[in-house]
Computed example of a mutant assay.
Amino acid sequence: MATKRSDADRVEAYTRALIEAARSEGRANADLVQWQHARKFSPEVLETLAAMQRENDLDLVAEVAKQYKELLDTEDRTVSVTVTTAVPMDEALRAKVLSKAERDLDAPVYLVERVDPGIIGGIMLEVRGKRYDASVRAQLANIRKTLSSSFIGGEEK
């Protein structure tokens, strides 16, 4: 009866196979970076890549990615909205932003949340290549600009 190798033995076998292949091609460090990102792939992506490997079609990866994006853009109405706030949004604010964006855009919305303490407060939205800046930083910059042009330019207005 064959005994199953331990996890540690299988891990070492996989690791040595990867290192040997990478070293023979002079790319051990590059492969390490790729390997660290591989765990982020969905099972479907891994299965598709394995099928492409079996069929010797890995040279088509860039074209598949390009067509994937094109199909997604034309067939999926979901709009990506990037929301930047000074502190993480709570559930109530997230729900308000999502609801308003879906109403205004008349489409389902996928929120990408960013935190940037440098905006001091308020909110910035980026959607379809346009930026809507209602941050405290932008408001202060506008006040500074207005004051500068009103009082420093010479005459008071």
Rank of each mutant, 00 (worst) to 15 (best):
G121L: 03
T74H: 11
E47P: 01
V64H: 06
L49T: 04
G121D: 06
A86W: 05
E102G: 03
D57L: 13
I120Q: 11
L125R: 03
S80H: 14
L125P: 00
P88R: 03
L46Y: 00
T82N: 01
V45R: 09
A101R: 05
V79R: 12
E44N: 10
Q67H: 15
L72D: 11
L111R: 04
E63N: 14
Q53P: 00
R54F: 09
D104G: 05
V109R: 00
I120G: 07
L46V: 09
E55V: 01
D59I: 04
L93V: 02
E47L: 08
V87A: 15
R128D: 15
N56E: 13
S80N: 13
G129I: 06
E70Y: 05
V64P: 00
A65R: 13
G122L: 08
E44G: 05
K96T: 01
V127P: 01
T84H: 13
Q67K: 15
P108H: 06
A65G: 07
R94T: 13
L46Q: 14
T74N: 12
A101I: 12
V61W: 07
V61T: 11
V115W: 06
D59Y: 14
A86T: 04
Y110N: 14
Q53Y: 09
E102A: 05
Q53G: 09
Q67F: 07
